[in-house]
Design a protein around this nucleic acid. Sequence first.
DNA 1: CGCTGTCATGATAGCGCTACCATTCCTTTT
DNA 2: AAAAGGAATGGTAGCGCTATCATGACAGCG
Lengths: 344, 344
Amino acid sequence: MSRDFSHAAKQRRRSDQVTLSQVAEAAGVSPITASRALNHPEKVSERTRNSVLKAVEQLGYVPNLVAGSLASSRSKLIAVIVPSLINTVFVEVIKGLQETLEAEGYQILLGNTDYDLDREYQLVRTFLGWSCSALITAGLRHNQACQTLLNNWEHPIMEVMELGQGMDLNVGLDHVAAGRCMAKHLVDKGYRHIVYVGARMAQDYRAGMRYEGHQEMLQSNKIETPLIELDTLGSLQAGADSLTQVLTHYPHTQAIHFANDDLAAGALLAAQRQGLSVPNDIAIAGFNGLPLGQHVTPQLTTILSPREEMGRLAAKELIRRLSGKNVYRRQHDVGFTLQVGGST
Amino acid sequence: MSRDFSHAAKQRRRSDQVTLSQVAEAAGVSPITASRALNHPEKVSERTRNSVLKAVEQLGYVPNLVAGSLASSRSKLIAVIVPSLINTVFVEVIKGLQETLEAEGYQILLGNTDYDLDREYQLVRTFLGWSCSALITAGLRHNQACQTLLNNWEHPIMEVMELGQGMDLNVGLDHVAAGRCMAKHLVDKGYRHIVYVGARMAQDYRAGMRYEGHQEMLQSNKIETPLIELDTLGSLQAGADSLTQVLTHYPHTQAIHFANDDLAAGALLAAQRQGLSVPNDIAIAGFNGLPLGQHVTPQLTTILSPREEMGRLAAKELIRRLSGKNVYRRQHDVGFTLQVGGST
DNA sequence: CGCTGTCATGATAGCGCTACCATTCCTTTT
DNA sequence: AAAAGGAATGGTAGCGCTATCATGACAGCG
């Protein structure tokens, strides 16, 4: 079988797709009744509904959602904008979102900003052009143009990942508090020479917020807050490399507080290879609660963030809003859990 | 003879979004010229183009892509259907796709089948309704209804992940050969008691294909091919659990060939915790070439599949086809590489 | 018996944009 | 000088669907 696109019918009717009118004719009703039978089944008689469904089946009708959306200026599309797909964290949130949204018949229009706010603005523009019913975006920071555009938009906006006063709805967790929490754990354990290792925190600014919390806590304990910032994104390899870097710059380091589990696990595995004992020679802490952290020896001390849950909750709240129900709380704190392993 | 707009306007226009006509008016040209200025800039004079762009800027015009798509029966949407988002493999392919497609101005409409072919059919129906310019789907297997629907569809279809005669375009690798390759490696290393561990291979049938290759190779060497099939999806935890299961059922096992790296790494880390020596007590092999495999000790023997590259290549081929260029090869083998670590 | 209300259905008029063809005003060719 | 071609622009007519209002049928009520 070979496909030929070259002579694609140059007429006005470019496709020979079955239309709703044809269905209506076959069912012996008017187009508008056929439309109702499919979209508001409760508004037509059972007889009509059945004959329309039968015609749909027979003709192999596939609704033209583009036309439907134009006519109703509504669509079952939801825009999802994330800064990265390499970082599994966002993928897990997407998973939670998708699971819940697809069950309600929504489709996800996915955009990736690569941590670039101008790119985000472009994506938002495009997505608004698709008359999405809602927009979900990771984070509370946007550029000015994007902010303006969204403020004038008349559909729900959900900002996830971090907690705070956003434009509309918000589901997330307090990253400053998370950083503080882990720092407190390290201090409580008796560590006094603690290095924070982050990766591109200007972009992954939530890691920066955790560093802020870390600083707060250490400073209130009169402890120095050395920082190593990598300029690659977090990965096992980067974590492994950073271990050497830390030990070179700060030879007395007792504990490393990593911005995420990829870095931390990479460092932990590297320490093992180098014959360093964790936590005796060096303690290691992460953030996220990735499965990997539970499977290394010693288990990684980390902060568990409920990512899929965050996605599911965000989707549920959005659906409530979209179905016209009152939304009582505009902000949801999904919290986090300190998970102490053997690595600290 | 003037028409009464005040009445009509009140009736229908639900949003006060700026339209192309308003832009045209502000720029002092006809709507169609404004449309051209934005979509085929080379077809209008520079003066016109500039005044239109200025008007767009001033009015904050955001093109209604739904209307545009309906009128032109084209859209810059590309449907991507994958069986899972938990499995990082698909996410990496998506990443490669997205990177390339977004650069060309396409948007991704993402669907997740959860390894259910009926769900796939539903998603395809919906996506066709959005007049996507192309469809990308993971795998060559579809149900009958889906097959029929797609055969009558007049846009490019790209099937990725596995190599074979598909409906249209195809970018993938030969999973049977990959299974054979790893099995050969294990045999060459001298192992004679080899267990294959897969997870839900009825659904993740590509793992099943690798098992076929594995069987072929072992049988031609007169070696038994015991199989353990888990009924959870691949994960570190499942891999860890399966280790016990293998050693209970087949105490003489020398090597385990895992369907993927998550399972293999999980088993490797579990072996370490249990004080088993890898590969002396038990050899472990995986599939995928996940970064994790390189960071454990010993390094995991695995088969590296170029996943992002697969996504990028698929996207590039699709774009070639969409821009009307001839596509010489309909099938692309991205190959795989045996990566021998210390685990075998 | 008219009046009102409810239910099922239909006629009409767009949603905001672009394909198609026509028009205008040049420049180039013979 | 007339014909032909080209570049820029515009008028018209939809794309396939649904919102809105209109209609007809029939039940319940005083």
